[in-house]
Amino acid sequence: MTSQQPQSAYLAIADQLRQEIRNRPAMTDLPPGADLMAQYAVSRSTVRRAFAVLHREGLAESLPGGGWNVSP
């Protein structure tokens, strides 16, 4: 029996966005939270946690009034 746990949804979303940021250097905006909620069938808080991971890594920044940009 393995001790591996399935990856948390927010980490999977963060991984996908991280790859997209790295593969698309011209990318400036992250997808809207509502789009990610629908795509991954997750809650708003799960998407926020994914954005927070990217923010801690210096890859994303929150915009006033909502939304997220790729950090320059």
Rank of each mutant, 00 (worst) to 15 (best):
S3Q: 10
S3H: 07
Q4G: 05
Q4P: 01
Q5M: 02
P6S: 04
A9P: 06
A9H: 09
A9I: 06
A9D: 12
Y10L: 03
Y10C: 10
A12Y: 06
A12F: 08
A12C: 07
I13R: 04
I13N: 06
A14F: 11
D15L: 13
Q16G: 09
L17C: 11
R18S: 15
R18E: 14
R18F: 08
R18G: 04
Q19A: 13
Q19C: 13
Q19F: 08
Q19S: 13
E20V: 05
I21A: 04
R22K: 12
N23D: 11
N23H: 06
N23I: 01
N23G: 11
R24H: 07
R24D: 13
A26H: 10
M27Y: 00
T28K: 01
D29V: 02
L30T: 02
L30D: 03
L30Q: 03
P31K: 02
A34N: 09
D35M: 05
D35K: 05
L36D: 02
M37C: 08
M37V: 05
M37E: 14
A38G: 14
A38F: 07
Q39V: 09
Q39P: 05
Y40D: 04
A41G: 09
A41K: 15
A41E: 11
V42T: 04
S43G: 14
S43P: 05
R44L: 13
R44S: 10
R44M: 12
R44T: 11
V47L: 03
R48F: 06
A50E: 08
F51G: 08
F51N: 04
V53W: 12
V53H: 10
L54E: 08
L54M: 10
H55K: 15
H55T: 15
H55I: 14
R56A: 15
E57W: 08
G58T: 11
G58F: 04
G58W: 13
L59F: 14
S62Q: 15
P64I: 03
G67K: 01
G67Y: 04
G67F: 03
W68A: 00
W68E: 01
W68D: 01
N69Q: 15
N69H: 10
V70I: 05
S71G: 02
P72E: 12
P72S: 15
